[in-house]
Simulated scan of single mutants.
Amino acid sequence: MPPEPTELPRPLLQADDLRVGIAGVEAVRGVSFTLRAGEVLALVGESGAGKSLTARALLGMAPRGAVVSGTVLLRGAPVGPADLGRRLAWVPQEAMSALSPVHRVEDQLAFAVRSVAGAGRREARAVARRALAAVGLAPEAAAAFPHALSGGMRQRAVIATALVNGPDLVVADEPATALDPERQEQVLTLLRERCAAAGAALLLVSHDLEAVRRHADRVAVMYAGRLVEQGAADDVLGRPVAPYTRGLLASLPTAGMAHRSRLPVLDGPPPGTAAPGAGCAFAPRCPHAGPVCRGSEPGTRPVDGRLVACHHPFGEAA
Rank of each mutant, 00 (worst) to 15 (best):
V187Y: 00
L188H: 01
P146Q: 07
Q93N: 14
V205P: 01
R156W: 09
A198W: 00
A200F: 02
L169I: 06
P139L: 01
V102E: 15
S97H: 13
P167V: 05
P78R: 14
A143M: 06
L169F: 05
I159M: 03
V212S: 02
L179Q: 12
A138I: 12
R156N: 11
R192C: 06
L190A: 05
A82G: 14
A131D: 04
R218C: 11
G152S: 05
R121F: 08
V105R: 01
E94P: 13
S206L: 04
R156E: 08
E182M: 09
A201V: 06
R183G: 14
E185V: 09
V219I: 11
E185L: 05
A211R: 13
A220M: 11
A126F: 05
A112T: 12
A98T: 08
A200L: 02
A211Q: 15
A196M: 08
V164Y: 04
N165I: 07
Q184E: 15
A134S: 09
R87A: 14
V135C: 05
V187C: 04
P92A: 07
E185N: 11
E140Q: 12
R122M: 09
L204K: 01
N165L: 06
G118H: 10
E174G: 10
E123H: 02
F145H: 05
P167F: 03
Q93G: 09
D173H: 05
Q155P: 04
A200R: 01
G120T: 14
A148I: 10
A98R: 01
R183Q: 14
L149H: 01
N165R: 09
V105L: 03
A148R: 14
G80D: 14
G85P: 03
P81Q: 10
H207W: 09
A162C: 06
M96G: 10
V135I: 12
L163A: 11
P146D: 11
R218V: 10
P175L: 08
A138D: 15
A77F: 12
R183I: 14
